[in-house]
């Protein structure tokens, strides 16, 4: 298990290199630099000095190399736009994004499991059809559109909830519902399928024969066995949740990393954008790793498989070297 974790952590290196290089190269292709957005009427001489200081008079690969050297030392760079270090900026925005993503994931799980149970237990009925249709609708609706609709209804028309910002606990409701909808739809479909498969297994029949009621069998046995695929899907969808958070944060003026990232891209602030993307990639990878470990802890069979796969991999590597 320890070697598996180490292996996964080592995989972060190419991820970081790939993400940072892509950001640097793509932002270099766009016209303009962050120094073009400075609204302080700097003299041309001062701008030329800053161009040199930030390496804009050299190639993108020089700037990339310089950035990565700093990154290795734990320095995510300095944003001229914000006049502060990127790591501090990122850490300041991270709690808001974690709160939003966390609330969305919890909400999605809390709603999708009962819906999936209901759909599976009434398989083929109008309820099942309705829940499946809702799931398709939820997966099809873009975040920005759903967010605006919810804002119009609950903030503008009914005056029930704040339209945006992060000023009070109620501010979290609309953004998290918006972000949760897609994940909830996806989880409902996955969980429903898993439940239907499990319901066909012999142990369910045995449990019923022992006198357990349908809900008892579902809650005590079937649901527990569908936790692993559910967690796997949640872990796989985390990237999409964080990606969706970028859109949602902008719709609801949520002060998270996603909004910082979009602003940085608009301002051609490659240092901030790269720092945010690298840290986000690392965060997603670590969360996925944590989810894998959690799955292994829940399901000992899976833990055994991980260790076996790893052992086979190591043997192959050893054989190749010989």
């Amino acid at each position: 298990m320890g070697k598996y974790i180490l292996h996964r952590l080592l995989l972060l290196i190419p991820v970081i290199l790939g993400v940072s290089l892509l950001v640097f190269v793509f932002m270099d292709l766009a016209p303009g630099t962050m120094l073009d957005n400075l609204p302080n009427d700097l003299s041309e001489a001062e701008i030329a000095r800053l161009y040199h200081e930030y390496g804009y008079d050299r190639s993108v690969f020089y700037r990339y190399g310089r950035y990565m050297l700093g990154f290795v030392r734990g320095d995510l760079g300095y944003s001229y736009i914000y006049q502060t270090g990127v790591l501090g900026l990122y850490l300041q925005r991270l709690p808001a994004t974690l709160a939003l993503a966390g609330a969305a994931v919890l909400l999605a799980i809390a709603l999708s499991v009962p819906l999936a149970v209901l759909a599976a237990r009434r398989h083929g009925s109008a309820t099942d059809q309705g829940i499946s249709a809702l799931a398709v609708l939820g997966m099809s609706m873009p975040n920005f559109w759903l967010g605006i609709l919810l804002m119009l209804l609950f903030a503008h028309t009914l005056h029930l909830l704040p339209s945006g910002g992060m000023q009070e606990p109620a501010s979290l409701i609309l953004p998290s519902v918006t972000l949760a909808t897609g994940l909830m739809a996806s989880l409902t479909r996955t969980e429903r399928t898993a439940l239907l498969e499990e319901q066909q297994k012999d142990y369910v029949l045995l449990a019923r024969a022992k006198g357990l009621t349908g809900p008892q069998v579902t809650v005590r046995h079937v649901l527990r066995n569908t936790l692993v695929p559910l967690l796997t899907v949640v872990a796989m969808q985390l990237g999409a949740v964080v990606g969706g958070a970028v859109v949602t944060e902008n719709v609801f003026s949520w002060p998270g990393v996603g909004r910082l990232l979009v602003d940085a891209i608009h301002e051609r602030d490659a240092v901030t954008a790269t720092g945010c993307l690298i840290m986000t990639a690392v965060m997603i990878s670590l969360i996925q790793l944590a989810a894998d470990i959690l799955c292994a802890l829940i399901n000992p069979q899976l833990r055994g498989r991980i260790d076996r796969d790893r052992a086979i991999g190591l043997r192959r590597e050893g054989g190749g070297a010989a």
Partner: peptide, 16 residues
């Protein structure tokens, strides 16, 4: 800061 002008108006009408 509200990037979107309509969101700013909604927040004002909503009393936020």
């Amino acid at each position: 800061y509200f990037a979107n002008e309509s969101a700013r108006l909604i927040a004002l009408e909503n009393g936020e």
